[in-house]
């Protein structure tokens, strides 16, 4: 097994995301959005966006452990920190943020959890990297970078300070 790494640009991807969200906010399609990050990597990206977009309300954090669809096969995932959504989500526009969009299962779980807090007006999805391999009909509204990867390639995001992203490819040799 050989492993090769390639660094992915993080700051450029965050800036691209930020520009796209700003443009949509200018168009009036996004009203006073609430930023919610998915633990762990998504919270780091959300935190960067939260600062860049100058949002007044506190950043929301979701831990989707209790909403995963693999409890029957894998059991309970080890805990990170609990979800923390201080602001009422009813009728609000929410920007849901994750680091990598892959199968779509994490986003499905996060949306289910959000609805247990209330009924948002709109949920939009912002991801740092959107890759292929979707298993559910889910697509990001904004992506910092699009990637087409091979079956043995993965994106590893580390953080929070500094945030780095690596493309890891492991091939049987």
């Amino acid at each position: 097994m050989t492993q090769t790494d390639r660094l992915l640009p993080v700051n450029e991807a965050i800036e691209r995301l930020e520009r796209q969200i700003r443009a949509e906010r200018r168009d009036g399609a996004l009203v006073d959005p609430l930023i919610v990050g998915i633990h762990t990597g998504g919270v780091w990206v959300a935190d960067a966006l939260h600062r860049a977009l100058d949002c007044q309300e506190p950043l929301g954090r979701l831990n989707i452990t209790f909403y995963r669809d693999d409890f029957n096969t894998l059991g309970l995932h080890p805990q990170v920190s609990p979800s923390d959504l201080a602001v009422d989500v009813d009728g609000r526009d929410i920007i849901l943020v994750d680091d990598v969009l892959f199968t779509g299962r994490t986003v499905r779980a996060a949306m289910n959890e959000l609805f247990d807090y209330g009924r948002p007006r709109r949920i939009a999805l912002a991801v740092l990297y959107q890759r292929d391999g979707r298993e559910l009909p889910i697509c990001a509204d904004w992506a910092g970078q699009e990637l087409n990867l091979g079956p043995d390639e993965q994106i590893h995001v580390d953080g929070p300070d500094p945030m780095t992203a690596r493309l890891v490819s492991s091939k049987e040799s």
Partner: peptide, 24 residues
Amino acid sequence: TRILDTAEGFVSVTDREIKKVPLL
């Protein structure tokens, strides 16, 4: 400690309007 840490996550669930998760 693992039980107590896991419980922190569940206690935050019981503070919400819908106090249920689909785990079991």
